[in-house]
């Protein structure tokens, strides 16, 4: 390519092109990061600074006590505990049910398989809010309103996860299963000793999406709980924003705190995280 275009003109054009690409890229990054920057900087301002126009880019002196104030203004400790508890239990439970179901769809022949699979995929089209009231009634009948059962048990399955893992399991050659069976390895043993270790990246993706989903879950928690003790971080934050008036610096401090666990998760698993998300788009 270079050999055919050695003219000075070409070099200049190529350079301007690259500069334009960098400008575009950094402008994009700036737009994407601006809200995060704004959240952080506002969380360290005094209230007067937070409401100033024209806005002040940096606080004159960082007000770290905003974090302590926000933390004690609402039961955030409890909210965080609830969110972690919900996210971790649903993730573990979902991974188990999903592995079992995906295995059946990927590696077993059984009556009604295609029909059942099509029905499961069809449920992805159902808007969750459509199911909210019947579920509210069910949860109330079970006596689970305002309890951890309501936050966890309905979320122990994900059709999306089943679909994703099934695709991955199908890639594991059948010969492996046959060989294991001849050696007297039971199905369940094969699944957890061979299939699962081979499918770690896909299982990570399923777990990650569940964790994010549970951490972000809003409408369900809003409807199924009513005492502050059972709120999770997003609902707690929304309630807090209604009570706080114009103390935006505290609201931003609380928002930063709500984001931190996900950021920590992201920075520790960055590569798998991005690959995991990218995997959801590959059929």
């Amino acid at each position: 390519m270079e050999a055919t275009h050695t003219g000075r003109h070409y070099v200049v054009r190529q350079r301007t092109y690259r500069v334009a690409l960098y400008v575009l890229m950094f402008a994009g990054c700036a737009i994407m990061l601006l809200p995060f920057f704004w959240m952080l900087t506002t969380s360290l301002k005094t209230q007067t600074e937070a409401l100033r126009m024209p806005p002040q880019w940096f606080p004159s002196s960082p007000q770290w006590q905003n974090y302590a104030k926000a933390w004690s203004a609402a039961p955030f400790g409890r909210y965080f505990f609830n969110s972690f508890f919900m996210a971790i239990t649903t993730t573990i439970g979902e991974v188990i049910t999903t592995i079992l179901a995906a295995y059946a769809f990927a590696k077993m022949k059984f009556f009604g398989k295609n029909v059942l699979f099509a029905i499961l995929l069809g449920t992805l089209m159902i808007p969750g809010q459509m199911l909210l009231l019947p579920n509210y009634v069910t949860i109330a009948r079970f006596g689970w309103l305002d309890s951890y059962e309501a936050l966890i048990i309905p979320w122990l399955v994900s059709v999306f996860g089943i679909f994703l893992l099934r695709q991955f399991f199908r890639g594991v050659p059948d010969e492996l299963l046959d060989a294991a069976r001849i050696d007297g390895c039971s199905r369940l043993r094969f699944l957890f000793r061979i299939m699962v270790p081979l499918s770690k990246p896909a299982i990570f993706t399923v777990a990650l999406f569940k964790f994010l989903g549970s951490w972000n879950s809003f409408t369900w928690v809003l409807i199924m709980t009513n005492s502050p003790n059972m709120r999770t971080v997003p609902v707690g934050l929304q309630v807090f924003s209604g009570e706080i008036g114009t103390a935006y610096e505290q609201l931003m401090a609380a928002s930063v705190l709500a984001i931190i666990p996900i950021l920590v998760l992201f920075f520790f698993t960055q590569k798998q995280f991005i690959q995991g998300v990218a995997r959801t788009g590959i059929k």
Partner: peptide, 19 residues
């Protein structure tokens, strides 16, 4: 940078947009 907006909890980022 592009990815961050997707993974961060929605309610928290809506708060800053509101502001």
């Amino acid at each position: 940078s592009f990815f961050l907006s997707y993974i961060t909890p929605m309610v928290a980022v809506i708060m800053v947009w509101q502001l």
